[in-house]
Design a protein around this nucleic acid. Structure first.
Lengths: 209, 209
DNA sequence: AAAATCATCCCTCTTTCGAGGGAGATATAA
DNA sequence: TTATATCTCCCTCGAAAGAGGGATGATTTT
């Protein structure tokens, strides 16, 4: 079970301080080493191709290209890529999408080192890794009803303060259709009005501001 | 200008990884040392009394007691306390409130080390420290129009998806008054409707979800 | 003492929301 | 092929929302 070569890790996080923390944490382990640091999603994709790390430690929320998209792109070019997602919030949407995009594991950012290090070892070894609370949620209530891409577009327009007619114009559909999307959004999220729909969507990671 | 005693620092952040990063960063400087780490606002207040650090590096968003409240409490007991706030978002509201509560400086979390270290030295030396972009904003457009406490309460109820009548009941006022508050909220934030009012308020740090 | 700010209440009126129906087209899965 | 899901369009109607006025009492500031 002893590996002669250390696990070569690429870190991707837009916060400098978090990157320092991850480097410091990883470097306390003799069998791991950080070989590169990316500050956004696009850079993560670029550096993956360049350094071919054994594992990517990736923040789910980043500028330029978010973590989920970055994972998808990396896995498309390199299906064997191992990715462990890091996130501050545990919105279901982010988690399911990250896993669907090809991430093997998920760790909450407020985890202590003794949770993160085993996760890195597990994913690097090809295993899945999910926090028990998240795994439980996904299994039990079989996650929330999924919004369609179009509904998410409508949500984003709503968050800007557009009226139904304006949303319709923006998306080149009729007001009827915009209202229909709104109806199904509210039904799926089980909320009372558009305002709550937006706040819930933000909490679940469905949209970002 | 050489100090014989290092700057004794208390770190307060709810994310373990960020704490590690801050410790690693600070410890590269010979004239600084981290003497304690708090994981929430209440602990920060407690540790301040216990360790009497020269400076507190405090996250503005924390569980139990947020950064702004913690600063206020610390400064009430110890008016000479030096606090440098750290934040991920640069919402005006957070910044002005932190400064009003007695923080001497403000640093964005995505700052690199060469920005954070000078900030620590400046605040420890009793100077103010604001990022140029923030200082510029506060000076130029003399900050945004301030919402009253009551208006913020209304905003919070709106974010939950309550109708005007429900907000009125929750706050024991008439629907007329609730609508009046909503009117002035929308005017001050210059938004089109309640949904945008909520999203803008979230972005500015006026309310949290 | 006068001015501003805050919180409250009131009324009208037009526009928008949201609920509740129905329906067709396409594409994919079973 | 029959579902199932997504996206689209349509209609009605009552209930909210939001704009526009006016007004009062209590504080605080000037």
């Amino acid at each position: 079970m002893k590996r002669e070569k250390p696990i070569r890790i690429l870190i991707a996080d837009d916060h400098y301080i978090v990157r320092i923390g991850l480097v410091a944490l990883v470097n306390t382990e003799p069998d791991m080493e950080v070989i590169a640091e990316a500050a956004d999603g696009a850079q993560a994709v670029e550096f993956f191709g360049q350094f071919q790390p054994d594992l990517v430690l990736m923040d789910s929320r980043m500028p330029m290209k978010n973590g989920v998209e970055a994972v998808r792109e990396i896995r498309k070019k390199n299906p064997a890529a191992r990715v462990l997602m890091l996130t501050a919030y545990d919105g279901d949407h982010d988690i399911t999408r990250a896993l669907a995009a090809g991430a093997q594991g998920y760790v909450l950012k407020n985890s202590t080192g003794d949770k993160l290090i085993p996760a890195i070892r597990a994913v690097a070894a090809g295993q899945k890794w999910l926090p028990q609370e998240v795994a439980g949620r996904l299994a039990s209530r079989k996650s929330f009803e999924q919004l369609t891409p179009r509904e998410i577009q409508v949500l984003n327009e709503m968050a800007k303060g557009l009226a139904n007619k304006e949303i319709a114009d923006a998306l080149k559909i009729t007001e009827y259709t915009a209202k229909d999307h709104l109806k199904s959004i509210m039904a799926k999220l089980r909320v009372a009005d558009r305002t709550e729909a937006v706040t819930v969507a933000i909490q679940r990671g469905i949209i970002q501001l």
